[in-house]
Design a protein around this nucleic acid. Sequence first.
DNA 1: GGGGTTAATGCAATCGATTGCAATTAGCAA
DNA 2: TTGCTAATTGCAATCGATTGCATTAACCCC
Lengths: 340, 340
Amino acid sequence: MSKSGKRISSLQDLADLAGVSRATVSRALNDSPLINEKTRKRLQALARKHNYTVNQQARGLRLNRSRVVSVVFMLDPRSDQHPSDPFFLEMLGGIADGLAAHDYDLLLAPAPIPSIQELAASRAVRHADGVIFVGQGEEHKALSELVDQDVNMVVWGSEIAGRRYTLIGGDNVGGGFAATQHLLELGRRRIAFFGNMRSPENSARYTGYQSAHVAIKAPCEMSLTFDIPADMQHAQTTIRAILQSQPGFDAIVCTSDVMAIAAISALSEIGIKVPSDVAVVGYDDILLAGYSTPTLTTIRQNIPYAGGVLVDSLLTLIDGKKASDRILGSELVVRKSSGA
Amino acid sequence: MSKSGKRISSLQDLADLAGVSRATVSRALNDSPLINEKTRKRLQALARKHNYTVNQQARGLRLNRSRVVSVVFMLDPRSDQHPSDPFFLEMLGGIADGLAAHDYDLLLAPAPIPSIQELAASRAVRHADGVIFVGQGEEHKALSELVDQDVNMVVWGSEIAGRRYTLIGGDNVGGGFAATQHLLELGRRRIAFFGNMRSPENSARYTGYQSAHVAIKAPCEMSLTFDIPADMQHAQTTIRAILQSQPGFDAIVCTSDVMAIAAISALSEIGIKVPSDVAVVGYDDILLAGYSTPTLTTIRQNIPYAGGVLVDSLLTLIDGKKASDRILGSELVVRKSSGA
DNA sequence: GGGGTTAATGCAATCGATTGCAATTAGCAA
DNA sequence: TTGCTAATTGCAATCGATTGCATTAACCCC
């Protein structure tokens, strides 16, 4: 296998070796019905033996597609932070699986997105057959404009006015509602909301938070709504400052599990007991949620599954068909320690 | 900008528009010294105006390179699990940054690696200018064979006999030593070691663990060495089973922070106090380590920096130069709760 | 054996960008 | 104006794979 005269690196090499034209080899490797069964087998065996794989750049050039899908994480631009939230990793895993199953490659776009204009001109977008955006950041308008430039794309996020792209997302209103309802049922009445409100997903969760109060005619104080940055470092300093001011809440609804973990840590620091003094509910149900101390009560989003849905929708678009929006279910997961 | 007659999608289009040959346009966009300064400016402005970017597939085909680097995470093959450890995400972020700085794209290889043979034939490897392996898995031999196939590659991991690839890694022996020494200094004498021993990195850490005992002439019992799978789900069941058997240790050195978190959770479940009854030290210093409850004492690896080093070494190789192996420092980070 | 079909293969253009070499133009000195 | 050099630009081949069309071979039926 290793001592074959010269390196086989193109269809032509293989064709010469087999004594046929490169057209024939191409058809054989692509299972064209035009080709004789025996020739096909012979050539496929030969290709395998010489460890030959088609040059995707050439193939892509000819066919005008690349079998590459880009993934772009839209982060809070104020934190020039990388994604540190395991949510992103789990999502990436789900997307990677979905793409692998359909024989697509995954190109990861550089983390801090420049302007959407630059992004539109970047290789990540031009070179790919389609793009998956995870989160809408604060650029929902620009995202809609991208659609007009004939970019195949799907977005993970939440409904927002003027949207023109295909949207996949969790049931954020329902999730916010369930989290809050759970705490209300436990008798908590001063429930804080922790999250970055500029994200459409979080404002949907906030809507659910309000509805839950309304549903049982409980008052819902604006003073308990706190704008917390998404990355942990800033989150924890902000939370510490809030705790200093003795806000007097007996529960917190957080917009992510890592934020909940940071909050619990800040609470324990100053001797506040979770959940007896303050109950905390997270969001996402990242894997760690079940293993941290205390274990987290949280809103479960099936993240790997979501990744698969994103991929399926995008591939539908790439096929030239229409893909419909989807809202995936979110459910409350009660674990004994943090939230009850 | 939007109402330009037809879409400019190739050099030829742009050349026609400007009334020059496509050779000229190509040279202008690539800052060739052959081109007249005025023409260059004019053509570059035109390209920008029409939002034109070169087709990378064509360019790559011609130049025989792709400006793509693949990243492969070598996971414990027994868990057909995705990477859930934030370590991977932080590493990925570091690598992504390094690549972006040099204008390379990042291709993420599908997570559960098939055989190395298949991998060698995959697009992820063939289509890329180079490959970064994170971890050696249990395939160190196969990795060395890949080098012989003219694959530009660097590997994050630990020294191992018969290695022929460029290696970048943390100081695992030193890290294992420091973690253990810290616990010994606190007076602990029955220190358990938790980790998957088939990974070269972990066995290096184990070596450090043993040396620390030897250094102060403390006995080091084999019965306190436990083989724990890398993924959290299996890790926690295994740890629970171990605790059932009342092994009687007063400290644990873990080979990752998530494992430490899982261990702490299992300990609290049955009422064992951390760190008073059992002290725990993690490894990696993932971002969460500072925010979990209790905060983790751990061995810090500067993961984003490591990502940058991996990239630099790989690009050196791609340039045809020799890249040297590097061992990056690991230092103990003491946080008050878990390990002291 | 002639004529008509069908199956299998080859030929050559094509995708878009780069680059060695040839050709053109300009500039300048005599 | 002529001749020579240097500065620009154009021509055309090339990278590797795909595919419409032409061609060849094989086979069948009278």
